Simulated assay, not measured.
Amino acid sequence: MKTIFQHIKGDKTIWAIVAILAIFSFMPVYSASTNLVYVVGSGSTFGYLVKHMVLLIMGFAIIYGVHKIPYRYFSGGSVLMLPIVIILLVFTLMQGTTIGGANASRWINIPFVGIGFQTSTLAGLVLMVYVARYLAKNKEKEIRFKESLWQLWLPVFAVLILILPANFSTTAIIFTMILTLTFVGGYPIKYLGFILGVGILALAFFVLIAKAFPDAMPNRVQTWQNRIENFSDADNKEAYQVEKAKIAIATGGAVGVGPGKSIQKNFLPQSSSDFIFAIIIEEYGLAGGFIIVSIYFLLLFRIFVVIRKTTTIFGTLLVLGVGFPIIFQATINMAVATNLFPVTGQTLPLISSGGTSIWMTCFALGMILSVSASKQETEEDILDDNPLDILHETI
């Protein structure tokens, strides 16, 4: 055990939080997967548990590998990855999977592995690093709006426009996080107001186009409309999942019905992913739910500790840009399960089943740990890195 601790660097509390969440996730995922086995009729509960464990092990490997990389490489790496991400998003839209006759063009299948990969999650991570790089490079300069349109907002909107047709909630979360990061990073507020207005107008234009040409993007706008209407209409049939989640929470009481004894997992279609928090409360009660919330708050606190100790602007913005979305996503997932927010399809980080979410969360945590493990860095060392030099060193 001592040998293991000698090889891991960075904030040990974050390592412990990740391990606790991962280990705790085994029982809820194993319990909730009975819905897929006995109701949907696919696989076995043990098989889903093994798959989840393998994904988490791969996630820990990602954390370990990424946290060993000096975080200055992420700056130039984001520039190299941005065109790759755009190509992947275009490819995803062109051949995305159709589920139940509805457009679900957010996944691509990884060859020879049989695992779906959600490219928008990778795009969001790359975009946050890219924005952090831009803000750090221009921190001591007067930002000119016209220049920032080409250097910052054109790549941002190009990525968001490619994500929007298949995944509105992810687009909204990424855009919100970017606005937050740019505000903290010192981007002029008067320009941010204009960017926000452009974003709202772009969304309205997209909705009009989708309404005018429904065959181009089947069911997407209608899905968003239904989710918003269902949030305020408890009698609507589309509110089925939320109602079952509320029943699960009410049944849980203070200490829950016990591990593996959930009833509503048999009725919630997304019991092992989007609504796993409701199953956790049903089985472990409000006490279990409170512990999960407290762990995420502790993670947020440790993120701010890392930020406080970071010696560079890029390191600070990087940790904020990739760390805060993890907490934001967890908050949205729990808010949906408790009917405080419309259904969005966001998973509970490190607990819900699903490979892409686990891997990208682990990649983000690896970057945070890389920053916390770094020695004294200078802004010049980080931002003067040429992306092509990084590619050459990697090869």
Rank of each mutant, 00 (worst) to 15 (best):
K2I: 14
I4H: 00
G10K: 01
V18I: 15
L21N: 09
F26G: 03
F26W: 14
V37D: 12
G41L: 11
T45M: 12
L49T: 14
V50A: 14
M53L: 14
V54K: 10
V66M: 11
Y71T: 01
F74H: 07
G77R: 04
S78R: 07
M94N: 03
R106H: 11
R106C: 05
W107T: 10
W107Q: 12
I108N: 12
P111E: 04
V113P: 05
V113I: 15
F117W: 15
L127G: 08
K137G: 07
K139V: 09
K139P: 03
W150P: 00
W153S: 01
V156E: 06
F157E: 06
A158E: 03
V159L: 02
V159D: 05
I163T: 04
L164S: 04
L164T: 08
A166D: 03
S169F: 04
S169W: 01
T176G: 15
G197L: 14
A202S: 15
A204Q: 09
F206Q: 06
K211Q: 12
F213D: 05
D215M: 08
T223I: 12
N226E: 02
E229T: 15
N230A: 15
E238M: 13
A239H: 05
I247C: 03
T251K: 13
G253W: 05
G258V: 06
G260T: 05
S262A: 12
F267K: 07
F267E: 08
L268T: 11
I276P: 09
I280R: 07
Y284R: 01
G285C: 04
V293Y: 13
S294K: 03
L298D: 00
F301C: 05
F304I: 10
I307G: 02
T310K: 02
T310G: 09
L318E: 07
F324Y: 09
P325H: 07
N333C: 05
N333M: 08
V336I: 08
P342I: 08
V343D: 06
G345Y: 03
G345Q: 05
L350S: 05
G354F: 11
T356E: 10
L369I: 07
S372G: 08
S372D: 13
E380S: 10
D384I: 02
D384S: 15
P387C: 03
I390W: 08
